[in-house]
């Protein structure tokens, strides 16, 4: 193929999940970093093999929750104390016990929204197209095949040696991914 000089990377296909985990671990140990594994279901041990860093999602959700909490309180405080002070049954203007339900709801809402939006942002979504969609064999990733793709941008990437390396790992097939 004449496209080989300008491809996205090399895609290796595996039949068994254990093969994928083992191959992925070997790829990581060899020093590759710019690669990604794909499977039709959660595979135990795969995230560790890919070398996933610790997720920053909990921090994002926590910040979302704190912002929601402050928003809920600030909004009610501003309304009842500053913008439109109203004497209700002789209670103090800053009657915080009655603020609590709204503060709680907004905390949950903001935390949940930041979880959804943070998940999308960190996964690089939405993403209408990906070069892997150009590989016909890749369709089976949602059914019964397991893949790992090493990108050309990886400093260790070499057309010939990487291809041979993947073949030695027991790949059923090593496929060029067109850009």
């Amino acid at each position: 193929m004449s496209m080989t000089t300008e491809n996205f990377g090399l895609l290796a296909e595996f039949v068994e999940p254990d093969e994928l985990v083992e191959a992925t671990a070997r790829i990581y140990d060899t020093g590759y970093r710019d690669f990604e594994a794909y499977a039709p279901m959660p595979v135990e041990g795969l995230p560790e093999a890919v070398g996933f860093p610790r997720s920053r999602m909990p921090l994002v959700v926590l910040i979302g929750g704190v912002v929601g909490c402050l928003t809920g309180f600030g909004m009610q405080y501003y309304l009842t104390v500053i913008d439109y002070p109203l004497n209700i049954g002789g209670r103090p203007l800053n009657s915080w016990p009655s603020f609590v339900p709204v503060v709680f709801e907004l905390t949950v809402l903001f935390a949940a929204l930041s979880a959804v939006l943070g998940m999308l942002a960190m996964n690089g979504l939405p993403r209408p197209h990906h070069p892997l969609f150009g590989v016909p064999q890749f369709d089976r990733v949602t059914q019964d095949r397991f893949f790992v793709c090493i990108r050309r941008t990886d400093p260790l990437f070499h057309e010939q040696t990487t291809r041979e390396f993947l073949q030695r790992l027991g790949a059923k097939e090593v496929i060029d991914v067109p850009l």
Partner: peptide
Amino acid sequence: SFSQFLIIWSGN
């Protein structure tokens, strides 16, 4: 606990 407190506190 807080529901009980809030309702009674609001009713006063």
